[in-house]
């Protein structure tokens, strides 16, 4: 057993875990935060994307012990109660999701994309930056649109630097 302390969506918890526990397992099974999904477990699909110390990382191939002491944000931590994050709102407004399985990872990647690339994102940049996220439902058309307008809205709301 190994002891791990993480701050997840603002709450700090310490747990004794099997050292081979992946971060995604820690979130889903120990914290019951099931919004982070597993689509491939080989770092290819991005369904498991969360923010670790502010950066988007794939939690399916990251040991929980490797991020001991980190601050984690999952999809459940993005909205403030009923108040959606601008990127979440944009996904709904522009129909950027169908089955919703890739969506938490898409949104977490998109928020990180804005942090790195700014709030004025053209389609080409968005498509290239989505290289690590697979969606089987939407054909990406509306995801690209949602991220474009979500980024713009983040700029207006001043959430880009968060």
């Amino acid at each position: 057993m190994a002891s791990v302390t993480l701050t997840v969506n603002g709450k700090t918890i310490t747990r004794d875990i099997d050292p081979r526990t992946l971060l995604v397992e820690f979130l889903r099974e120990h914290m019951r935060l099931t919004g982070t999904h597993v689509g491939c477990d080989t770092t290819q699909c991005g369904c498991c994307t969360v923010h670790v110390d502010g950066k988007a990382l794939k939690s399916c191939t990251l040991l929980a012990v490797a991020v001991d002491g980190s601050t984690i944000m999952t999809i459940e931590g993005l909205a403030k109660g009923e108040d959606l994050h601008p990127m979440q709102a944009a996904f709904r407004e522009y129909h950027g999701l169908q089955c919703g399985f890739c969506t938490p990872g898409m949104i977490m990647s998109a928020v990180d994309m804005v942090r790195r690339k700014g709030t004025d994102l053209d389609d080409k940049t968005i498509r290239e930056e989505l290289e690590g996220n697979i969606c089987r439902c939407t054909g990406y058309h509306n995801i690209v649109k949602a991220i474009h307008y979500g980024a713009e809205a983040m700029g207006k709301a001043g959430t880009a630097a968060e």
Binding site: R28, L33, T34, G35, T36, H37, V38, T74, I75, E76, L78, A79, L84, Q88, F91, R92, L97, G100, F101, T103, P104, I107
Partner: peptide, 15 residues
């Protein structure tokens, strides 16, 4: 249905 999906509150079988 979108609100639950974009907030991570969907309930899939693995959940």
């Amino acid at each position: 249905e979108d609100f639950r999906f974009i907030t991570g509150k969907g309930q899939y079988t693995d959940d």
